[in-house]
Design a protein around this nucleic acid. Structure first.
Lengths: 251, 251
DNA sequence: AAGTGGTCTAGACCACTTC
DNA sequence: AAGTGGTCTAGACCACTTG
């Protein structure tokens, strides 16, 4: 009998179901199956690609989770024509600089403020600290060309960091780089609260909105490591420069 | 040899993996595993519950998709202490009336406006119609006790409906009931765009905000059937009465 | 009756973490 | 070495839709 296919390939490697998923997503983005069209059946895909039906189902589960398709018993796998084209999905990773470049602008940031402060009770609770523990507070604004588009305030437990490494780093880099390189931590999920606000005088001034009546979208967000430990609390104020989208599954 | 467990039970029935998932979620909500605690291992759960590891993994996949847990190779299944307590998750179904009751208020709606209009090009595109096709337009505001908390504008293709059934219905009911009972359609997913706005004079007046400077959260949202057909376009303006949350997976 | 996706079992091997 | 989750195969039967 033929040897089984290699299972358990490393995550960064050539996981078969991920390959299949990526291939299908790419096909969708290029409009191969759009309209009210359907994908080939699971058995057909399995045969075409020379893998088991389970692999195909794993790949399709990925696509379904992301909203690209719906699977209907007795019917088939249906494509959502609109989802593949979405940008800035709040349910995915958001990278300020990429988002700005995607709109044809050149991103940069200024008004950087780095302080070490004592955590108040509320903040301590959200980051699993004791009130009074020291946190690293980084505030900045980000601009697209010369237009201010967001203001952010990031808070991390100072104890997380290797102080020597931290001292050597450029604090104007994304906080995720700080966490990764000076604290050895990665974030994999967040809990965010979404608000529409005016932002108060200082934030509005930073964003050049004093005098106008433009509302701001504010995300109040805690980031977690893969071990579900909260390590970052962000407040981010966005102008209407960005168009955020989200795919909701009504379960 | 022992007979296999019954597979393929109907969706509304007693699907084993869903039972396991529900049971685990309930345990999490009651704080059984919270803290930085872990769930029992997959093999252990499988043995405890008398099912295959696949069933357990299916259930855990569900929990992971919803953000309740993270699964870490070589470590185990870690619980996110904060997610189980979340309310009003934008990545789930939102029911106005339940949300209002959950805050201890009594919901009702008024200022209902029902019209039949011709779809402009933009609207037609979002609902897969021809420009000029007739749409059913329903506007209303919703109050918590006597406080206005949201204003919504819902648009559906008129052709979808059985006109006789529609005529018999109470148009002040949720649009989802109209779609289900007069058009035989259910929505399973949406694509939403999130904006912070002021809302303009009419909306602000409806929400009793003229004079103040409170910003509004606006969701511009298209609803799809399980066959990925767009059947409903909503614009909803929320005051800060609600606190919307979302779990983001950074993939 | 035939074809579709949905669920489940059983068994195997892999990669990662901890001891 | 032992234990964890991750991936894959193979096979079975079920529920739903269509002809």
């Amino acid at each position: 009998m033929k040897k089984h296919m290699d299972p358990g390939t490393p995550l960064g490697g050539k996981r078969i179901s991920a390959q299949v998923a990526a291939r299908l997503i790419e096909a969708l983005r290029q409009g191969r199956y759009t309209g009210h069209d359907r994908l080939p059946s699971e058995v057909e895909l399995a045969a075409d690609l020379g893998v088991s039906r389970t692999v195909v189902r794993d790949a399709l589960s990925e696509l379904e989770r992301e909203g690209f398709i719906e699977r209907v018993r007795g019917i088939g796998t249906v494509v959502n024509r609109d989802v593949a084209a979405l940008e800035n999905r709040v349910d995915h990773k958001l990278e300020f600089y990429s988002m700005i470049r995607a709109k044809g602008c050149e991103p940069h940031s200024d008004h950087l403020e780095v302080t070490k402060e004592a955590a108040d009770q509320k903040l301590a609770a959200s980051l699993c600290l004791q009130p009074g523990d020291t946190v690293l507070h980084i505030r900045r604004r980000v601009l697209a060309d010369e237009i201010p588009v967001l203001y952010s305030s990031d808070v991390m437990p100072l104890a997380l960091f290797d102080q020597e490494k931290l001292a050597k780093m450029d604090l104007s880099c994304p906080v995720f780089d700080l966490l990764e390189h000076a604290a050895g931590q990665q974030t994999v999920a967040t809990v965010a609260h979404i608000h529409a606000v005016n932002g108060g005088g200082q934030v509005r001034q930073m964003l050049g909105l004093n005098g106008g009546d433009q509302a701001l979208l504010m995300l109040d967000e805690v980031f977690y490591t893969r071990l579900c430990c909260p390590i970052l609390h962000c407040h981010t104020y966005y102008t209407d420069f960005f168009d955020f989208s989200i795919v909701r599954k009504l379960m």
